[in-house]
Simulated assay, not measured.
Amino acid sequence: MIRTVVTAVFTFFLLTATSCHNIFAPETGDIGKSGLLYNPVMSRPAHVLENFRYAYIYRDSLVYSTLIDSQFVFVYYEPDDEGGGGHYESWPRDVELRATGGLFRAFRPIDLIWNSTLDSSFSYIKGDTLLKTQKTWFDSSNYAEIVKSFQLNLGDNLVIIGSAIFNFSRSPWDNQWRIVKWHDESSF
């Protein structure tokens, strides 16, 4: 009887001590100044692109959705199988989020490599009027265009190489940069 009680108490304490530890959780450690793998404050378009890469690699659709502006448009070229021609297609934010969520579920692993910045410009726009443009970063800008070359590895066999033209806008409400247009120029 005493042996059963001691065993029960020991088992209870063992379960209590280990029940709060998730053996599948990543180890804690120093992963940067903010303690996060992504940058929650997107004060520059470069931060948005870093978070974009993070969202793809970790298949994090919640982080990805914070990068996409409510007026977002994705533009891509749809080649014609018959005549060698083609046309441009586009879709809005809600379709983009569904398509990217499907991509995140369909492929493991995903690796996105930003290669080089091919071009960039920053502007200040008020209403529909462009007030000034500059090729380098300046603090008063609220619109940016950055052209990046990339390599996207989906699973073990599919590699997409190309470039993307990203248009960014800084929100006047929270001062965060977001992608308003992504013109994809990739090839399989």
Rank of each mutant, 00 (worst) to 15 (best):
R53A: 10
R53D: 03
R53T: 14
A55C: 05
Y56W: 11
I57C: 07
Y58G: 05
R59N: 08
D60L: 11
D60I: 06
L62P: 07
S65G: 14
T66N: 10
L67M: 11
L67I: 10
I68V: 15
D69S: 14
D69T: 03
D69C: 07
S70H: 02
S70N: 11
Q71V: 04
Q71I: 01
Q71F: 01
V73W: 02
V75K: 06
V75H: 02
Y76A: 12
Y76G: 09
Y77P: 05
E78Q: 13
P79L: 03
D80G: 01
D81A: 09
D81Q: 06
G83K: 06
G84C: 03
G86Y: 02
H87K: 15
Y88P: 04
S90C: 03
P92W: 00
D94F: 10
V95Y: 12
E96Y: 10
E96A: 15
E96M: 15
L97C: 10
R98T: 12
R98Y: 04
A99V: 14
A99K: 15
G102M: 14
G102S: 15
G102K: 12
G102D: 13
L103D: 08
L103W: 03
F104T: 04
F104M: 04
R105T: 13
A106N: 14
A106W: 03
F107E: 02
R108H: 09
R108A: 00
P109T: 01
I110C: 07
D111R: 12
L112Q: 04
I113V: 12
N115Q: 11
T117L: 02
L118F: 06
S120G: 01
S120E: 09
S121K: 11
S121M: 07
F122H: 10
F122C: 05
F122Y: 15
S123P: 14
Y124T: 15
Y124C: 13
I125C: 07
I125A: 02
K126V: 07
G127L: 06
D128A: 10
T129I: 04
L130D: 06
L131V: 13
L131G: 00
L131M: 08
K132I: 12
K132G: 01
T133I: 14
Q134W: 10
K135E: 01
K135W: 06
T136M: 05
T136H: 00
T136E: 11
T136F: 01
W137K: 01
F138L: 00
F138I: 00
D139L: 13
I146C: 08
I146T: 00
S149T: 08
F150E: 01
Q151G: 08
Q151L: 03
Q151Y: 01
L152N: 06
L154I: 03
L154W: 04
L154Q: 01
G155E: 03
D156W: 06
L158K: 09
